[in-house]
């Protein structure tokens, strides 16, 4: 029997990471109706960008000093890839049947994995990532690793910054207008191409923060995710989960993405901890079934509330 507070904390941490990545899926979808399946790989590239900075720093640099630089390195790498993908892979396909960019996204996802595997030094195996040393913390009866605290701080801060950006700035308003009616946005003088690039860049920034946070957080949150290291496949299943979170929360809604992430993370943690306690379900518990339960949850939500938790039924007057 696992302690409930611990399971909830694990779920929250995992969910915060899903949420950060889910924001990228949801923003891009909200503006260009494209499911950017390569977004999980943008997250992975963010991890490698941060690793590169870590390797370039002198040995023994305190992690607290190195972390901001590593985040910047991760963001730079992730944003560069995301913006290039938009410009050269997706933009030429705008206006094409929806299947074309979707297939391109899947191809790009595989290409990015293979590129890192082939060209990043020693990336054929997982590469060790620096970790916070020192005692874990006790918060409300749950043990939280130092690296996880970073994630718990970063996620709400990122959300708040994004919320203010979208609601209060001119570019943010241009973004909402472009999402709601791109042609009319152009009539207002909004350069919608630029807005789309910004959406990709923001998504990539969040994914990079999530990547650094995820790998800075020490293991034991969930079995499937190998924290404390980066590898070229790390974006695949995590990206799929984050996409699930975006759909769960209501695709297109940035707060929904974070909520969906947290709901998914908590559900996964609870399923891992408690399903096997239910009589007759003992073989369906534990870490190996958690991905299954995550997708069962997705299917249930889609059946009962197809627009997602915070999604709005599109009922605009014509």
């Amino acid at each position: 029997m696992h302690e409930l507070p611990q399971q909830l904390a694990n779920g929250l941490i995992l969910g915060a990471m899903y949420g950060l990545i889910a924001i990228g899926y949801t923003m891009v979808y909200g503006i260009v109706q494209l499911i950017n399946f390569a977004h999980g790989e943008i997250f992975m590239v963010g991890g490698f960008g941060a690793l590169t900075v870590h390797l370039a720093l002198p040995d023994g640099t305190a992690l607290l000093l190195a972390l901001p630089l590593m985040i910047l390195g991760g963001i730079a790498a992730a944003v560069a890839i995301a913006v290039a993908a938009e410009r050269f892979a997706y933009r030429p396909l705008r206006g094409a049947p929806r299947l074309a960019p979707l297939i391109t996204a899947i191809g790009l996802s595989i290409a990015l994995q293979q590129a890192v595997w082939k060209w990043y030094p020693d990336a054929k195996k997982a590469r060790v990532f620096p970790q916070f040393k020192g005692e874990s913390l006790k918060i409300l009866g749950a043990t939280v690793q130092r690296g996880e605290v970073f994630l718990l701080i970063a996620a709400p801060l990122c959300m708040l910054a994004l919320g203010l950006f979208v609601a209060r700035t001119r570019t943010g308003r241009g973004m909402q207008a472009t999402a709601q009616d791109p042609d009319t946005a152009k009539l207002m003088g909004i350069n919608t191409d630029r807005i789309i690039v910004i959406a990709f860049a923001i998504g990539a920034t969040f994914a990079a923060v999530a990547a650094v946070a995820a790998v800075a957080a020490v293991a034991a949150v969930a079995h499937g995710l190998k924290y404390g290291q980066v590898d070229f496949r790390m974006g695949f299943i995590t990206g799929l989960k984050a996409f699930t979170a975006a759909v769960l929360g209501g695709i297109g809604n940035i707060y929904g993405a974070m909520l969906g992430g947290v709901v998914l993370g908590v559900a996964e943690a609870l399923a891992t901890g408690y399903i096997e306690e239910i009589p007759g379900m003992s073989q369906f518990g534990g870490g190996s079934w958690k991905d299954v339960w995550a997708f069962v949850l997705l299917i249930l939500v889609l059946l009962l509330r197809p627009q997602g938790l915070l999604g709005e039924r599109v009922a605009d007057r014509a």
């Binding site: 001119r170 241009g174 909402q176 042609d183 009319t184 946005a185 207002m188 007057r317």
Partner: peptide
């Protein structure tokens, strides 16, 4: 300036925000 057929206001933005968008530049 062009007021399009079928109105095409931004439905989820407020009226004030719609007017601000008209003055975007």
């Amino acid at each position: 300036a062009h007021s399009p057929e079928g109105r095409h206001i931004f439905p989820r933005l407020t009226i004030a925000e719609n007017l601000q968008l008209g003055a975007f530049l």
